[in-house]
């Protein structure tokens, strides 16, 4: 018998009385819906409390906001995708030669660690209650893009802010299957491992910049 079979058979041997059907659990405490307007404010507040920089902008002007962020942080090498619509718009509007636009797929290993000053990604949703941004990395916007460069810039559409994690995963039917890696990101990396002193910039990005696309309709 393999270790697997021995463990499983020990678990099945349990002498405990066979349970009658387990009663359905009550998840109502997780239903905490917020109005659209409240969702946006809560999202902004929570992220700012976690020391993220949040910039409200619009679909028409967001690349200007991005350019300003890059300038103010003196970023000259930006990693970004090629296919994602936000990445395409950024590539179109930032073509002034002031900075290098690098697709992550073209930089490998050590280079990625050393050359990129910021990574731009899209998001697949956001959470108001906790100020979280949800990412589903893929071939175009790989996992490292939001992880290795010291600054992570992420575009969030106001329409995709959900009240809670519970609401987000149920609305998007996560139970049907997930990508190889899915992430919730709620600020720049941090630690309090040295005498409980909160320090930002542990091993992940030292800064998180959220460009929030607001909608007037």
């Amino acid at each position: 018998m393999s270790a697997r079979d021995r463990i499983l058979s020990r678990l099945r041997e349990r002498a405990a009385p066979a349970p009658t059907q387990f009663t359905e659990l009550d998840y109502s405490v997780m239903h905490r819906p917020l109005d659209a307007a409240v969702r946006k404010t809560r999202f902004l507040e929570s992220l700012r409390a976690a020391r993220a920089e949040v910039i409200e902008t619009t679909e028409a002007t967001w690349t200007d906001a991005l350019a300003k962020v890059l300038d103010s942080r003196e970023i000259t090498a930006l990693g970004l995708g090629e296919i994602h619509p936000w990445a395409q718009a950024a590539r179109r509007d930032l073509k002034d030669g002031r900075r290098r636009l690098v697709s992550f797929a073209s930089v490998k290993g050590r280079e990625a660690f050393e050359r990129l000053e910021a990574g731009l990604t899209s998001s697949c949703g956001a959470i108001a209650e906790t100020g979280s941004v949800c990412l589903w990395p893929d071939a175009d916007e790989p996992r490292s893009l939001s992880l290795i460069p010291p600054v992570h810039i992420v575009v969030v559409d106001e329409r995709h802010i959900y009240s809670s994690f519970f609401e987000l995963q149920s609305a998007q039917s996560w139970h049907k299957g997930l990508p190889s890696n899915a992430l919730l990101i709620s600020g720049p990396s941090k630690t309090a491992d040295i005498e409980q002193t909160l320090v930002f910039g542990a091993h992940g990005p030292k800064a998180l910049v959220v460009l929030l696309i607001t909608r007037s309709d």
């Binding site: 976690a50 990508p179 890696n181 992430l183 709620s186």
Partner: peptide
């Protein structure tokens, strides 16, 4: 309320 990262690996 939340940690910086919630990493789901599938």
């Amino acid at each position: 309320n939340v940690t910086t990262y919630f990493n789901m690996i599938s």
